[in-house]
Design a protein around this nucleic acid. Sequence first.
DNA 1: GCCATGTATTTGTATATACAAGAATATCCC
DNA 2: GGGATATTCTTGTATATACAAATACATGGC
Lengths: 148, 148
Amino acid sequence: MNDKSSQVIDTMARKCIVGRMRLMNRVITGLYDSALRPLGVKASQFNILVVTGQLGLARPAEVCSILRLDTSTLSRNVERMRTQGWLEIVPAEDARAQPFRLTEQGRLLLEQCAPAWERAQQGAEELLGEEGMTLLDKLARKLGLPMS
Amino acid sequence: MNDKSSQVIDTMARKCIVGRMRLMNRVITGLYDSALRPLGVKASQFNILVVTGQLGLARPAEVCSILRLDTSTLSRNVERMRTQGWLEIVPAEDARAQPFRLTEQGRLLLEQCAPAWERAQQGAEELLGEEGMTLLDKLARKLGLPMS
DNA sequence: GCCATGTATTTGTATATACAAGAATATCCC
DNA sequence: GGGATATTCTTGTATATACAAATACATGGC
């Protein structure tokens, strides 16, 4: 490999935003997955539970817009969580819609997640530091996240 | 749902680090996936190509350590990329090892990715802003990323 | 040399994710 | 009211990801 090629590759390695983002995502997700494992919940599912809990009655399109998820992704996640008994579909006027909400069991589960979530949250804060937390807040706002 | 429950859920929604991290990851990954799509490369694969290019001869365990990837994940990614003709396995002394490197085609592809990567990179920088970029650098260092 | 132990990787299984295409229903306009 | 169009969601397909278990080889002690 010649020098020019090496240089280009080196630049892409050192500056790549998506590389960093994905790596950090794996690390942080691992933290929460570990903490939530005893409850049988994954980080992805936890976030859906939380948003559903906030909305009360959740329209898939709305949840996807909030979480920036493809509708097909949510569709399958909801299906799995429905199978677990955490969510239930609610009949709607519009026959196309499939609004859902937490079941009683789902609400209980979500509350039971709180201590594990706290622990993971603390671990993540330690990793990121005070400064990192502030930064994350700003990034979230920069991306216009509804969760900020 | 009573007030106490709502409060807990609201806190988890507003403060959740993993939620933000995963959401930002989806947004940023989408940016790079779109830019790289004409080349038939995904963000995940691009990052493996880059690290392999840097290492020259890449041992799976080493790549996994750098990218914080499970070995089983890398194993399958490498297999797909080998099928594409981008990577090749190199025989090693230790018969357990499966070191690999870029093929000529893989090296060319990686170089051809540079303009698309630049475009995605610019898009990401616009999203994150100057400040966000600095923050990301710091986060990366905080997590001890080798890519910083 | 052999056996226990350790190391490097793959395989089995499950979830998460997105794009493209399909299905079902609603709306609009004539 | 009926057909074109838009909306909402699901299905088909492919990749990414991790954990647990299996495989295959190496190493060290006896």
